[in-house]
Simulated assay, not measured.
Amino acid sequence: MHYLLKSEPDKYSYDDLLRDGETVWDGIKNNQALITLRNMKKGEMAIIYHSNVGKAAVGTAKVVSVKLAEDGKTPIVTLKAGKRLKREKTLAEIREAGVFQGSIMFRQFRLSVVPLTEEQYDWLVS
């Protein structure tokens, strides 16, 4: 499984992840997004998408670990920086791509964690 993780670049950008090397992906409150985070597995890949500013897929990250916080519900997902995309894919391009037709990304736009199909992931990194 692959994922698209939305980040506000003025709060934490892909450049910040590259600088840090690893980070805990937190601050998620939406129940559906939390369920998706809980289901992540070590080794799975994600696309980091800059929301609000830039509105583009910018780079990759790898899931290093998924643990539950002391409350037993909140996932603690650690990501390792991958590579910057050869070319950023803008929201307009993603919306136009046939591979995203019917995607939850456009049905529930406010979700900050979105599962991706293999085809969607491949299109974003191509």
Rank of each mutant, 00 (worst) to 15 (best):
K11C: 07
E22R: 12
F106T: 04
V125K: 10
V99L: 14
N52D: 14
L111W: 06
L17D: 04
L124D: 05
V24G: 02
I48M: 12
L68N: 05
D10C: 07
T90E: 13
M45S: 14
R110L: 12
L4K: 00
F100W: 13
E93K: 11
I47C: 10
T36Y: 15
L5V: 01
D16C: 03
Y3E: 03
M1S: 10
H50E: 03
Y49T: 06
L124S: 07
L85R: 05
A61K: 06
R95K: 15
M105E: 01
V24K: 14
M1F: 06
G27Y: 14
T23Q: 00
L79F: 15
G59A: 04
A97R: 03
D10N: 13
G102N: 09
H2Q: 03
V53G: 02
E119H: 05
V114F: 06
I94P: 08
K42H: 11
S13N: 05
V99G: 07
L5A: 04
K73H: 13
L79T: 01
E88M: 13
W123Q: 02
E88I: 03
Q32I: 04
L17Y: 10
P115V: 10
Y14L: 07
E8P: 01
Y49M: 11
G43D: 08
L4S: 00
A97F: 09
K55G: 03
F100N: 08
A81Q: 06
V99W: 12
G59V: 08
T60C: 11
V64P: 00
A61Q: 07
Q32G: 02
G54K: 02
W25Q: 03
Y49E: 12
K41D: 06
A57D: 01
L111Y: 04
K11R: 13
L68G: 07
G27W: 14
G54D: 01
E119P: 02
D26R: 09
E93L: 13
K83D: 15
T78G: 02
Y121Q: 01
V125F: 08
S103I: 02
K41G: 02
L4Y: 01
I48N: 01
E96H: 08
A81C: 09
R38G: 05
K73Y: 12
M1N: 04
A69V: 03
K67D: 14
E96R: 12
L79H: 04
I47V: 14
S65Y: 07
G27P: 06
V53Q: 11
E93G: 09
K42I: 04
V114P: 00
R87P: 00
Y14W: 11
K62L: 14
V53A: 13
V63H: 08
R110Y: 10
V24S: 12
I104G: 12
G102Y: 05
V66C: 04
E118I: 08
L4D: 00
R110D: 08
D20L: 13
H2S: 09
N52I: 15
K29V: 11
K83P: 00
N39H: 05
K29W: 10
E93F: 12
V58M: 02
A69W: 10
L37Y: 06
Q101E: 13
K41H: 12
A97I: 03
K55R: 15
K55Q: 11
T74V: 01
A33P: 00
V125S: 08
K89E: 02
W123H: 00
A33L: 06
I94H: 09
E70A: 15
S51R: 03
R19A: 13
L68K: 11
Y49A: 09
R107L: 14
I48Q: 01
Y121F: 15
